[in-house]
Write a protein that binds this DNA or RNA. Structure first.
Length: 424
RNA sequence: GUGGCCGUAGCUCAUCAGGUAGAGCACCGGAUUGUGGCUCCGGAGGUGGUGGGUUCGAGACCCAUCGGCCACCCCA
């Protein structure tokens, strides 16, 4: 029989890696609570048009990366490729706008790309979104809290912030026209992809990796020169706050984002350590999206971070917050009566001791083999139950980590108390 | 989606003008029979990703396919 494999690009996350994920998720949840953000949980499947209308018809995500299918009544549904659209949809559906909402979510996203290190078809994002406030202070807070997250995780040295402003609708339109006409005059010098984008999505040409295109762009018009007064003031204000907080960033005039809904502030946290998958976190402001979905005009800003990429960075650190031992106490038992006794005693110990991991050997075998397992479990204490202990209503306690500690025997009625004393 | 590199025991890898596979780690057992960690000894485990082809004979050559990685692309 052919063995069934998981779908390409959709990976299992196994222990002990799961404990690194748990560590990351715990840091995220507590940090966001400290900034007053609350969790929202969203469905993984949505109507296809939700993404077409928000991300943009001519983006690569919508054009060729979505997992879309018809359900039984003929509706076109899509496995979400990102979370912001769902979040905005929920906001409108439940009439939560335009009041202030600070929300975060986390979970799997789906994009049909070619899998690579740091890029899979089912991946996980942390999304953080703020609705109802247009101020640059919100943008700044999002950046400051993400910077704090990197610090907590010990990643601050490996992730750098890039910042740009796309301006508002009108100024962006002007810039787009200027860029298109400037580039059209030089179309012959462009690579194929860029030439195609000249019609679809000209701003994306700015972050082409083609070196020729990049050097051509040296002299191209710059967005910053087209910002209207409000957008320019917003960007200045944001930079002022970041500077006041000592947050280091580089302004990258070529930074644009692949999703159409952004305006004003856009940013990316990037790393050198993951090859071509260098973007760990990206986001910006999207002031028109809520209204576009039929909600009341509600300014908004947010970002998404790739959890797999963060996990990879954490693994590169070689630190191990995950090296927690599996067990604190390990019960060994030889003989049928002893094994019943061990299980019962372990239950009683769990009744009385909170927060300790109590493992009972269920595989059987000699004391020798069971003690080997006790040792590998990382337990500090082994409890030994054999025929003699069953008859005497006693239990052996063997310290496994101490230097000179000898095994000793206690009454079964005192076992929990003695273990507690030794573990404390 | 495009181009390239790769795919041998659970893991990391080796071998060889093409003649039907090995090591380390892990696993199991033993070193006087109720006791771990170190050491020593032994054992189990691979239809060589899968399917075709070339050949007297292929894991080694060719093709396809699946999967991984790198770059492009894209983005988190």
């Amino acid at each position: 029989m052919k063995t069934i494999r998981s779908i390409r690009g959709m990976n299992d996350i196994l222990p002990p890696e799961t404990s690194l994920w748990q560590y990351l998720e715990k840091q995220v949840a507590s940090l966001l609570a400290e900034y007053g953000y609350r969790e929202i949980r969203l469905p993984v499947i949505e109507h296809t048009e939700l993404f077409q209308n928000s991300i943009g018809e001519s983006t690569d995500i919508v054009e060729k990366e979505m997992y879309s299918f018809s359900d039984r009544n003929g509706d076109s549904l899509t496995l979400r490729p990102e979370g912001t659209a769902s979040c905005v949809r929920a906001l409108c559906q439940h009439h939560l706008a335009p009041a202030l909402q600070k929300l975060w979510y986390q979970g799997p996203m789906f994009r049909h790309e070619r899998p690579q290190h740091g890029r899979q078809r089912q991946f996980h994002q942390l999304g953080v979104e703020v609705f109802g406030v247009a101020s640059a202070e919100v943008d700044a807070e999002l950046l400051l809290l993400s910077a704090r997250l990197w610090r907590r995780l010990g990643l601050e040295k490996r992730i750098q912030l890039q910042l740009n402003s796309l301006g508002d609708g009108e100024s962006r339109q002007h810039y787009r026209e200027a860029l298109v006409s400037w580039l059209s005059a030089r179309e012959a010098a462009l690579d194929d992809d860029s030439r195609r984008r000249l019609r679809n999505n000209p701003l994306r040409i700015l972050d082409s990796k083609n070196p020729q295109t990049q050097s051509l762009l040296e002299d191209a018009p710059v967005m910053a020169d087209f910002l209207n007064e409000e957008a320019a003031a917003h960007f200045d204000r944001l930079r002022e706050i970041l500077d006041a907080n000592g947050l280091v960033y580089t302004v990258n005039h070529r930074l644009v984002r692949g999703l159409d809904y952004y305006n004003r502030t856009v940013f990316e946290w990037v790393t050198e350590a993951l090859g071509a998958q260098g973007t760990v976190c990206g986001g910006g402001r999207y002031d028109t999206l809520v209204q576009q979905f039929g909600g009341k005009a509600t300014p908004a800003a947010g970002f998404a971070a790739g959890l797999e990429r963060l996990v990879l960075l954490l693994q590169q650190l070689q630190q191990s917050p995950l090296e927690e031992p599996l067990a604190d106490v390990y019960f060994t038992a030889v003989g049928d009566a002893a094994r019943v006794c061990a299980i019962t005693l372990a239950e009683a110990v769990r009744d009385q001791l909170d927060g300790y991991n109590i493992l009972v050997n269920c595989e059987g075998g000699s004391f020798k083999s069971q003690l080997k397992k006790a040792d590998k479990s990382g337990a500090r204490l082994a409890v030994i139950i054999g025929e003699r202990e069953v008859a005497a209503r006693s239990a052996g306690i063997k310290p496994l980590r101490g230097e000179s500690a000898e095994q000793f025997s206690v009454a079964q009625s005192e076992l929990a108390a003695r273990l507690q004393g030794l573990l404390a």
